[in-house]
């Protein structure tokens, strides 16, 4: 009996063959394009302009990386992205924590109104108010500024809700007794709630970091000055310059692939160090709907 239980645990016969084939096909379909990026980015401009499958090096070279930093001046958009993403994300986590904390106060007068006020914003899709967002930023003088890139999307109902859910796991009596002892709100928040909610903060931090790093629509709306370009805008411009002049390749393929590698590295680092939080975050995001 025990033997059969074990055997039935695995695919057998034709199904096993199908399993291996499908796994291999999907793996190659997803892996080869990324591998191609790596190989082309570290090839010479000449090799990358030749036809061929380019899954192995003819000659290894870092001239693509040299090109993007010296000719395309990629350091500027890279630092822009790094700056607005980091600062915006840190502020988002702080504000979401504060607001989430407010929403768990049980006897707080007007708590219901505050809650609804925040929830409703989750139903306003930012991408559909884009044109008035543009006009708002124009009125506030935020076009072509770092402030604009940071302020737009600085806080979201979703991260507030997520922090509230984490705070709710703390027994309310704990906070009450601290309050009886005369501790101020800030102290209660820092001493009682914050330690419990660190995983939640990490989740928001990493999810928001990835979203901001990748954001295209908002920078494309707010920024026309190239010195304020973020990475996605710069990349788009680089790709376009090849596209529109097809034939007379303005930017060599190895440089485009190098730029892709450079803008991907921070995300890969985040994935390696914070995989747990990211996967948890996307599941929560799905449950929300």
């Amino acid at each position: 009996m025990k033997k059969r239980v074990k055997i039935n645990n695995r695919l057998t016969g034709g199904w096993a063959v199908l399993f291996y084939i499908l796994t291999a096909v999907i793996f190659l379909l997803m892996f080869l394009p990324m591998w191609n990026v790596l190989v082309v980015s570290t090839s010479t401009a000449l090799d990358s302009s030749q036809s061929g499958i380019k899954l192995w090096w003819n000659s290894f070279s870092l001239e693509g990386f040299k090109y993007v930093f010296e000719v395309t001046k990629m350091a500027v958009p890279f630092l822009n992205s790094l700056f607005v993403t980091t600062l915006g994300t840190v502020i988002q986590v702080i504000l979401a924590s504060l607001a989430g904390y407010v929403l768990i106060q049980r006897d707080l007068p007007f708590r219901g109104i505050l809650s609804s006020f925040i929830m409703i914003t989750m139903m306003i899709p930012g991408d559909l108010t884009l044109i008035s967002v543009y006009q708002l930023n124009k009125q506030l003088n935020l076009l072509n500024s770092y402030q604009g890139l940071i302020l737009n999307g600085l806080i979201s109902g979703f991260s507030i809700l997520m922090m509230r859910n984490y705070f709710e796991t703390v027994p309310y009596s704990l906070a009450e007794s601290a309050r009886m002892d005369g501790a101020g709100e800030l102290k209660i928040f820092l001493r009682v709630y914050l330690p419990v909610s660190l995983p939640g903060m990490a989740t928001i931090f990493f999810m928001e970091y990835v979203a901001r790093w990748n954001s295209i629509m908002l920078p494309a709306t707010l920024i026309t000055d190239e010195s304020k370009y973020t990475l996605p805008l710069m990349l788009k411009q680089m790709i376009l310059s090849v596209d529109s002049t097809s034939g007379t390749m303005a930017v060599p393929d190895n440089a485009i692939m190098a730029a892709i590698v450079v803008s991907t590295v921070p995300l890969l680092l985040i994935y390696i160090f914070a995989q747990r939080f990211l996967l948890e975050g996307i599941q929560m995001g799905a449950v929300k709907e």
Partner: peptide, 15 residues
């Protein structure tokens, strides 16, 4: 691929 921006994925596939 889900982690990457459309600039990256778009640029990758265009190339």
């Amino acid at each position: 691929p889900y982690l990457l921006s459309w600039s990256v994925v778009g640029g990758l596939w265009i190339t």
